[in-house]
Amino acid sequence: MALLSWSNQYLIGNDLIDAEHEELFRLINDFHTLWVEARNRQDIAKILHQLIVYAQMHFQHEEKIMEDAGYQMLAEHQKIHESMIDKIFELHASYAEGHLRLEIETMKFVKSWLLDHILDHDYRFRNYLARTQNASGEAAPQTAEGKS
């Protein structure tokens, strides 16, 4: 049972960022499936760890792409990434300590983390990419409706 469904509405306009966002959706759905199926804590902790490692790698890639594009809000975006990683590490540590309500708290966090981050902060970068690509004569990224 999927918690999140990938859609073209989440596309940013950079192939690497978009592919990594889609993979984050898959990892979150895997985490959710293990949780719903009441799998053992070791399986859940393993997928949560994979999610953390992948998110860190993704944030590094995303920040490099933003830096290369001359994105003026990079420093702010990096602080948001740091805060998100700190929170997920905190949740992971609490989970490892056996706190019972953590699964629900973690599930809420990872769902809102990905959706809110993409739909707010990453969309700002998408809009920046569209403006800079339009100014340079390149094709603008397409949204789900096929409009830029």
Rank of each mutant, 00 (worst) to 15 (best):
D86G: 06
A38M: 09
F31T: 00
H49C: 05
G137Y: 03
A96P: 00
A144M: 13
L16Q: 01
L34Q: 04
G70V: 09
E37V: 04
I47F: 04
A55S: 15
A55D: 00
A93S: 09
I17E: 02
R131G: 05
E62Q: 14
E20H: 06
A19Q: 15
L100D: 06
S94L: 14
S7D: 13
A2M: 07
A69C: 11
E90F: 15
E105I: 15
W113K: 03
D15V: 10
I118A: 04
G13P: 05
K46P: 01
R126H: 14
I17C: 06
S112A: 10
K79E: 13
L100Y: 09
E145K: 11
Q9N: 14
H77G: 14
H49M: 09
I17Y: 05
Y10N: 05
Q56F: 02
H32Q: 13
W113H: 15
L91N: 00
E103L: 03
G98S: 13
W6E: 07
G70I: 07
E76A: 12
R131F: 07
L27W: 02
Q78T: 08
A69N: 11
Q9S: 13
Q133H: 09
E63K: 03
E82M: 09
F59W: 05
W35K: 15
I80N: 07
E145R: 13
A45V: 06
K111N: 11
E20L: 14
D18M: 07
I65D: 08
H81N: 13
E105A: 14
N40S: 13
V53G: 10
V36I: 14
L24N: 03
H21A: 01
N8T: 12
G137F: 05
Q50M: 03
L114P: 01
M73P: 02
E23Q: 10
S7H: 10
W6L: 06
G137Q: 09
F59G: 04
R26C: 00
I85K: 04
A140L: 03
I80Q: 14
V53N: 03
E138R: 12
Y123S: 01
R126E: 04
D43K: 05
E76Q: 13
A139S: 08
K79V: 09
K87L: 14
Y10Q: 04
E82V: 10
E37C: 03
Y123T: 08
N40D: 14
H32N: 08
M84G: 00
S112N: 15
I52Y: 10
